[in-house]
Design a protein around this nucleic acid. Structure first.
Length: 430
RNA sequence: GUGGGUGUAGCUCAGUUGGUUAGAGCGCCAGGUUGUGGCCCUGGAGGCCGUGGGUUCAAAUCCCAUCACUCACCCCA
């Protein structure tokens, strides 16, 4: 054995999940699962390792640079999954034509990206994914947004109208593609322009124009793009891109369905939402904190109708979102919406000396048989420590058994913060 | 990859122009009360002051290097 002690810290970017953190995580996951199931989604999962080949895409997708990769002992090139969508597509392909469509699947995979860390970003996170496979109508998008909305509401966010704490920014890549095409911007320049457009909110108008002209755009083109990015209303958008723009038409339909769903008041059109993943083809959207205290997308989603083809499968319309645990937990913490004082244990049994351990165990077994969570405190420590523990774990009552109780065949039941009384052990079936 | 900030007890942090034995609060442990809590009182454990070098009679303090953490940019959940 080496005398040198190792670092107590986890690997950079990874999190230790202590019991107090795990309580929060379980609470969050339960909300996610409950909402997904209430919309009729089925849970799936896979291993955290995938073939590296699954993530080799067209250049420009930085996610591939952040892959954790290694070679296994059989010489296979392996990657830790950076996201779930390619795995989902692979699994759908594996089912061939046997899967009845449309299908609604969800998952909470742990994903890994080797990147620089900062507020709200680790190298590992859990990401709630919901995807609808085989539905080309924007009804799918609206249903997914409604699920996100339901979750936010369930955990206590105000999600309505002007004072909403979370906003939805919606865009459509077809609008941008068609519009830029009409300006004569295509191919490589298109991709570069998209990146500048995505940054517009952060760098401001002047810098946007400058960066666009650096990429060979004239001032007329640059101003047209800036104008497009500033659009927040549908009328304005129609005038700018034209009624026949296919992306515009699907956005109109989306908003109309969102109104019917009762979520339209938190949705705004923002063409500067592009999103980094190259496989998106239609609707793209992001959730953000309207107070700005977490300056980072809370969740993001989009339609990726051509991903299956690009992997060699049948053309299949798909749409989905990813919702990371790190950012939402941070936001819930800042807004003081995390749960507190959860009950971990219903009953704390306190045998005062070890002579009462046996009877304490029999009592515990009885109570556990009645679906109660029971902690037996074997420390033989003083009363004040035991009751402190009982409070800490949120116990409803303490069951005290000392020498005199054992002799009399009773247990002393004490409600936390209340009175106590003797109760015969026979009341508990002993 | 670029640019800032911070490293002192388990946690949050004080620490004066460099000057004896490095502090507080919280938490933990014990006692006051050999079997009845939250309050209070007393005591205790716990530190290579991130690491290495330099300046000095003397360094937590000044200088250099290095590592770690962290924030912003980039990218994204």
């Amino acid at each position: 054995m080496s005398k040198q002690s190792i670092s107590t810290k986890p690997v950079k970017g990874m999190r230790d999940v202590f019991p107090a953190d795990m309580r929060i995580r379980n609470w969050l996951f339960q909300h996610w699962r409950t909402v997904a199931k209430s919309f009729g989604f089925e849970e799936y999962d896979s291993a955290i390792v995938e073939s590296e080949a699954l993530y080799i895409r067209k250049a420009g997708d930085d996610i591939t640079k952040e892959l954790y990769t290694f070679e296994d002992k059989g010489g296979r090139k392996i990657a830790l999954r950076p996201e779930m969508t390619p795995t989902l597509a692979r699994m759908i392909m594996a089912k061939g034509g046997s899967l009845p469509l449309p299908a609604r699947w969800f998952s909470i995979p742990q994903c890994f990206r080797y990147e620089r860390m900062q507020k709200g970003r680790k190298r590992e996170h859990f990401q709630w994914n919901m995807d609808i496979i085989g539905l080309s109508s924007v009804a799918a998008e609206v249903e997914l947004m409604a699920a996100q909305y339901t979750f936010l509401k369930n955990v206590g966010f105000v999600v309505e109208g002007e004072k909403t704490e979370i906003g939805f920014k919606v865009s459509n890549r077809q609008i941008i593609e068609t519009f830029l095409d009409s300006l004569g911007i295509t191919g490589e320049t298109f991709a570069e322009v998209c990146i500048v457009m995505d940054k517009r909110d952060k760098i401001g108008e002047a810098a946007t124009i400058e960066q666009l002209s650096q990429r060979g755009l004239n001032s007329e083109q640059a101003n047209a793009i800036l104008n497009l990015l500033n659009i927040r209303g549908m009328d304005e958008l129609r005038e700018t891109v034209g009624e026949d723009n296919p992306g515009y038409r699907s956005l109109v339909e989306l908003i109309s369905l969102a109104e019917a769903m009762g979520i339209a008041s938190v949705i705004e059109v923002d063409l500067s939402v592009i999103r980094g993943l190259s496989y998106y083809t239609g609707t793209v959207w992001e959730l953000y904190d309207t107070s700005g205290s977490v300056p980072r997308a809370i969740a993001g989603g989009g339609r990726y109708d051509r991903l299956m083809e690009s992997l060699g499968g049948k053309p299949t319309p798909m749409v989905g979102f990813g919702f990371g645990d790190v950012v939402i937990t941070l936001l819930l913490q800042e807004k003081k919406k995390l749960p507190t004082n959860q009950t971990l244990v219903d009953d704390v049994i306190y045998p005062i000396q070890k002579e009462q351990f046996a009877i304490a165990n029999r009592l515990a077994a009885q109570l556990r048989g009645q679906n109660r969570t029971v902690l037996v405190e074997y420390s033989e420590r003083r009363f004040k420590h035991v009751i402190k523990l009982a409070e800490k774990v949120g116990a409803k009552r303490m069951l005290i058994i000392g020498e005199s109780e054992a002799a009399k065949g009773v247990v002393r039941c004490k409600t936390i913060g209340g009175n106590q009384e003797e109760q015969p052990l026979s009341d508990f079936g002993l």
